[in-house]
C-alpha cells in the first residue's frame, strides 16, 4: 500500500515452500475418551517468511507447534519441512519455548547453553566460537557469557534462548508464545529483536502467540485459528510497511484496521464460528 521500504528490496521474493502442513489432525486418546485438539489444518509457509499464528486460548496452538516441531505425532495428515516429512525433530529447525526458565540448562553458563547444540552438530571449534559470539552480540548479551541463566532476568533468559536458536542457524525458527511471560517493555524490545534477526538472517519464522497486537505487529501474514477442534479460520496478509517501529507502526490507521479485523475473527472463533467447508 505504501512505497516499498528499503529492507524489502534485499529480501528475495522466493516462493519455495519451507513448511507445508496438510490436513493435520491430532486426537489425544485418553482413558475411555478422546479429545480432538486439532481437526484439519492446512497451510504453507514460504521460505523466508515471518508468519504468526494466533488463536483463542485453548485453540490447540501448542499442539500444532509440537506437531510441526516433530515432538508430537499427528493422528492424520502430515507436516513437510523442506520437502521432507517430519517424523521427529528435523535438523534444520530450532524452537524457542515460552518457558524460558525451563528450557535453558541451569547447570551450564550462557555460553555453554548456546554452544551445546553446535557441538552436537559437530561444528568446528573456531566456527562454533564465532557463531556463539555473534549470536550473543546480536541479542545484546555479549557480556553475560559466563553467567548462569538463573542469574539473569526473564527477558535476558529468553534472549539467551533466542541466541541459542539463532546460533544453530536453523532454516525454520519456531517460537511458541515466547514473550507471554515477560513484562510489556521487555516484550516490545524482544519483538523488535525478532524482526531484526529475521531480516538479517533470512530465516523463516513461525511465531505462535495469543496476543493479537503482537501478531499484527510482527507478521507478514497472520493465520487465525478457530476454537478447538482447530481449523484455519482465515489467513490475513499484513500489508504494513516492512520497516516496523513500535510507535509509528502501531499508530498507523492500517494497523488499527488489521488489528480490529483479527480481533473480530478471534471473537468469532471464541463464539464457535467455523469457516464453511
Amino acid at each position: 500500500m505504501t512505497t516499498a521500504p528499503i529492507g524489502a528490496a534485499a529480501r528475495p521474493e522466493s516462493s519455495t515452500t519451507m513448511l507445508d502442513v496438510r490436513n493435520l489432525k491430532k486426537v489425544y486418546e485418553g482413558r475411555g475418551r478422546s479429545v480432538e485438539a486439532v481437526r484439519d489444518l492446512t497451510f504453507t509457509i514460504a521460505s523466508g517468511e515471518l508468519v504468526c499464528i494466533v488463536g483463542p486460548s485453548g485453540a490447540g496452538k501448542t499442539t500444532l507447534l509440537r506437531c510441526v516441531a516433530g515432538l508430537l505425532d499427528s493422528t492424520a495428515g502430515e507436516v513437510v519441512l523442506e520437502g521432507e516429512r517430519v517424523t521427529g525433530p528435523p535438523p534444520g529447525m530450532a524452537v524457542v519455548f515460552q518457558e524460558y526458565g525451563r528450557s535453558l540448562f541451569p547447570w551450564m553458563t550462557v555460553r555453554q547453553n548456546v554452544e551445546l547444540p553446535l557441538k552436537e552438530k559437530k561444528v568446528p571449534k573456531a566456527e562454533r566460537q564465532r557463531l556463539v559470539r555473534e549470536a550473543l552480540e546480536a541479542v545484546g548479551l555479549a557480556d553475560a557469557q559466563g553467567a548462569h541463566p538463573w542469574q539473569l532476568s526473564g527477558g535476558m533468559q529468553q534472549r539467551v534462548a533466542i541466541a541459542r536458536a539463532v546460533a544453530y542457524e536453523p532454516h525454520l525458527l519456531l517460537m511458541d508464545e515466547p514473550f507471554a511471560a515477560v513484562d510489556a517493555q521487555t516484550r516490545a524490545d524482544l519483538e523488535d529483536l525478532v524482526r531484526s534477526l529475521w531480516k538479517r538472517l533470512g530465516v523463516t519464522v513461525l511465531f505462535v502467540t495469543h496476543d493479537i497486537d503482537e501478531s499484527v505487529y510482527l507478521g507478514q501474514r497472520v493465520i487465525v485459528l478457530s476454537d478447538s477442534p482447530t481449523v484455519v479460520l482465515e489467513e490475513v496478509t499484513i500489508d504494513l510497511p516492512d520497516e516496523r517501529d513500535q510507535l509509528v507502526t502501531r499508530s498507523l490507521p492500517r494497523f488499527a484496521e488489521l488489528r480490529a479485523h483479527v480481533y473480530e475473527l478471534i471473537q468469532q472463533a471464541k463464539g464457535g464460528h467455523r469457516p464453511a467447508s
Binding site: E99, E120, R164
Partner: peptide, 20 residues
C-alpha cells in the same frame, strides 16, 4: 519436560543427552 523437549529439538545424541 521442557528441558527434555529442548534436548530433542536440538537433536542431542544419546550420549550427550545422558551426560548433559
Amino acid at each position: 519436560e521442557v528441558l527434555r523437549d529442548t534436548a530433542r529439538c536440538y537433536r542431542l545424541r544419546p550420549h550427550s543427552r545422558l551426560v548433559h
